[in-house]
């Protein structure tokens, strides 16, 4: 009993912060989005979003971009995670530092770098122009490509780290055994490492998808007003039009939408785990 009281006392400031700073505000949002001015349950705000083609397009763009970004992260992330896991400790350390640096840099700074690279007269459009692929003064800004590139750079480390955690635990003897049994190197990657790394790929995908669906600074700076995404729309609604119930409703749609996509996926992960 005494021990429990000590533990409760130690955790008390944490509980207070969690209540005031997190649980109450989040619960508040969930309530605000489904109630009218008199506190009566209503679906007005939700249906306003779900019936307006403008907002549906925003939702669709959010899902589409997040899917593309997640897929890119898997494709680019799996080989890196494998190389990190099987390379020397030194190589692994430097690669981890390389991918955590953008992760720990402010999102505005990272995005600014992409703006310089992708904008008119930037390195990438100029190179493409030199190759004769695009006209002069071409800009990649305000395109979905720009959003995808910028977001992939930021979110890719999450994918790599969660795959890395799983691949590090795969016994290297399994790969050796498969080689002895007649697999080429690439076949052993496909038939042994990849199936066993699936839980990491799934965990990484969940993380990347959720984060990319809820980022708004990178999409709004690189995609601009012409390419609004759901999170950006929440921000605009909350700070420009100050329509908080509608912003709350959009938040609910974001959370529910992400959950609806994630729950079947998470179930898949449980099956993959056996």
């Amino acid at each position: 009993m005494n021990k429990l009281r000590t533990d409760l006392l130690i955790a008390a400031p944490g509980f207070l912060l969690l209540m005031v700073g997190f649980l109450i505000p989040v619960a508040g949002i969930l309530l605000l989005g489904v109630r009218d001015a008199n506190g009566v349950l209503t679906a007005t705000h939700l249906s306003r979003f779900l019936t307006d083609p403008f907002y549906l397009e925003i939702a669709w763009r959010t899902v589409k971009l997040s899917l593309i970004i997640t897929a890119l992260c898997i494709v680019a992330g799996f080989p890196l995670a494998y190389i990190m896991a099987r390379g020397s400790a030194r190589l692994r350390l430097w690669l981890i530092i390389s991918i955590t640096l953008p992760l720990m840099t402010s999102v505005v700074v990272r995005t600014f770098g992409w703006m310089v690279l992708l904008g008119r007269g930037g390195l990438i459009p100029d190179t493409l122009n030199m190759l004769g692929l695009v006209r002069r003064n071409y800009s990649l800004m305000q395109t979905e490509t720009a959003v995808v590139l910028g977001m992939t750079q930021v979110l890719f480390p999450f994918m790599v780290l969660s795959i890395l955690g799983v691949v590090m635990r795969i016994d290297i003897r399994l790969e050796e055994a498969s080689r002895v049994m007649g697999c080429t190197f690439l076949k052993s990657l496909r038939l042994v490492v990849l199936p066993l790394a699936i839980p990491g790929v799934i965990a990484g995908s969940l993380l990347v998808f959720t984060l990319s669906a809820s980022y708004f600074i990178t999409p709004s700076l690189l995609g601009g007003a012409r390419l609004p995404v759901l999170a950006g729309s929440i921000y605009e609604t909350a700070t420009r039009t100050l329509d908080w119930p509608f912003a709350a409703a959009q938040s609910i749609i974001l959370v529910v939408g992400v959950l609806m996509l994630l729950i079947p996926y998470a179930r898949l992960s449980r099956r993959a785990n056996g």
Binding site: F22, V26, L207, A247, A248, S251, L254, V255
Partner: peptide, 30 residues
């Protein structure tokens, strides 16, 4: 030792998973 420790740790780690924008909006309104 506290009952429901696993729930507790999930709750405390929740800000890592829940989209920041939602909690930011909630905090603004609150």
């Amino acid at each position: 030792r506290l009952p429901g420790t696993s729930v507790l740790s999930a709750l405390f780690l929740a800000p890592l998973v829940l989209p920041t924008i939602i909690f930011a909006l909630g905090l603004l309104i609150f």
